[in-house]
C-alpha cells in the first residue's frame, strides 16, 4: 500500500517527466489548485499527452481533477482513454460523489476515486462517503479546511486531532485507505512532527507537496526495526503452529494480528530500497 502521495503540477513538463524518480509510491497529478484558470486547457492537454507517451511505471498514478463544470467534464473526457489508478475528487461530499457516479454511468465506466475531505460538510457524512462504491481512499485536506473553518494549523496538530481521528475511523470502518494531509513547508523539523502525528493515529500514508518531502514520509511510514522483528516472530510462530491463534510473550495473537504482521513484512520488502538513506 502506498505511503507517499506526491502532488505534481500538471502544467510543468520538468516535474511531470521526472515524477517517477522521486521515490513516491503514488503520484497525484494536479489539474486543480496548482493550475491558474487560464492554464487549465494547457495543463489538461499536457497531462494527457504525457500519460499517453510516458505513463510512469512502478508507481500509482492519480489525477486531481476540477470538481466544477465545465472543467469537470473536460477533465474526465481527457482522462477516459488513459491508464490511471483513479482520480482525486476535490471537496468530496455525498452529493458530489453521486454526480461523479452519474457521469461515470453515462459511459459505463468505473474509474475509482480518492475523496479529498476538505469541507466542514463532509465530516457529517464521512462514513457514507467512505463506504461509497468507487471510493478507494480518503485524503484529509487540512489547508482548505483551515480556510473554511478558521482553524489555525501548527506542527503539533492539536487542532487537527478530531478531524484526523474521524477521517481515520471512517476509512478504517470502510476498509479503505486513510491518507494524511500535506504539510506545507519544507522545513524538516516541523514536517517530521506533522508526519509523526499522522503515523501515531494509524494513517496509511501522507501527501507530499514537494519531492524533497518524500524521503521523510517514506522513512516514517517504513516499519521500525522493532516492528519488523516482532512481525517476523509472529509470522514465524504462525507458520510453525499452523494456527491463527496462539500466545507469544504471554500475549494472545489472533487472525487480524497475524495478517497485519504479514502485510507489514510485504510492504517492508517492497519499499526496502526506497528509503531516505537506503540502509
Amino acid at each position: 500500500m502506498a505511503r507517499t502521495y506526491l502532488f505534481i503540477p500538471g502544467n510543468v513538463p520538468r516535474m511531470l517527466q521526472n515524477a517517477d524518480v522521486f521515490e513516491a509510491d503514488a503520484l497525484i497529478i494536479d489539474l486543480e489548485d496548482a493550475i491558474a484558470t487560464y492554464e487549465k486547457d494547457e495543463a489538461r492537454e499536457l497531462t494527457a499527452q504525457f500519460l499517453r507517451a510516458h505513463r510512469p511505471q512502478g508507481v500509482e498514478v492519480y489525477v486531481r481533477i476540477n470538481a466544477e463544470e465545465p472543467l469537470f467534464s473536460k477533465d474526465m473526457k481527457a482522462l477516459a482513454p488513459l491508464e490511471i489508478d483513479g482520480v482525486v475528487l476535490p471537496k468530496t461530499t455525498l452529493s458530489s460523489l453521486k454526480a461523479y457516479e452519474a457521469y461515470q454511468d453515462q459511459f459505463d465506466a468505473k474509474l475509482p476515486l480518492i475523496g479529498l475531505i476538505e469541507t466542514p460538510e463532509a465530516f457529517f457524512e464521512l462514513l457514507q462517503i467512505a463506504k461509497f462504491s468507487l471510493v478507494k481512499g480518503l485524503i484529509l485536506g487540512a489547508e482548505d479546511l483551515s480556510a473554511a473553518t478558521g482553524m489555525h494549523r501548527d506542527e503539533n496538530g492539536q487542532e487537527l486531532l478530531f478531524c484526523r481521528s474521524k477521517l481515520l475511523l471512517a476509512a478504517k470502518a470502510a476498509g479503505i485507505r486513510a491518507i494524511d494531509t500535506p504539510w506545507t513547508t519544507l522545513e524538516e523539523a516541523s514536517l517530521s512532527l506533522d508526519i509523526q502525528s499522522a503515523k501515531r493515529l494509524g494513517f496509511d500514508g501522507k501527501c507530499a507537496i514537494h519531492p524533497n518531502q518524500v524521503p521523510s514520509i517514506n522513512d516514517a511510514f517504513f516499519p521500525t526495526e522493532e516492528e519488523l522483528r516482532k512481525a517476523r516472530r509472529i509470522v514465524k510462530r504462525h507458520e510453525e503452529t499452523n494456527s491463527m491463534r496462539f500466545s507469544l510473550d504471554g500475549k494472545m495473537v489472533d487472525k487480524p494480528v497475524v495478517e497485519k504482521a504479514k502485510a507489514l513484512l510485504e510492504s517492508a520488502e517492497a519499499y526496502r530500497f526506497k528509503r531516505g538513506k537506503g540502509q
Binding site: 513538463p13 517527466q17 494547457e42 492537454e45 499536457l46 499527452q49 504525457f50 507517451a53 510516458h54
Partner: peptide, 11 residues
C-alpha cells in the same frame, strides 16, 4: 520532449 511540443501545439 515530443509530448510537450505536441501538447503545446494542440493547445
Amino acid at each position: 520532449l515530443d509530448y510537450t511540443i505536441k501538447a503545446r501545439l494542440k493547445t
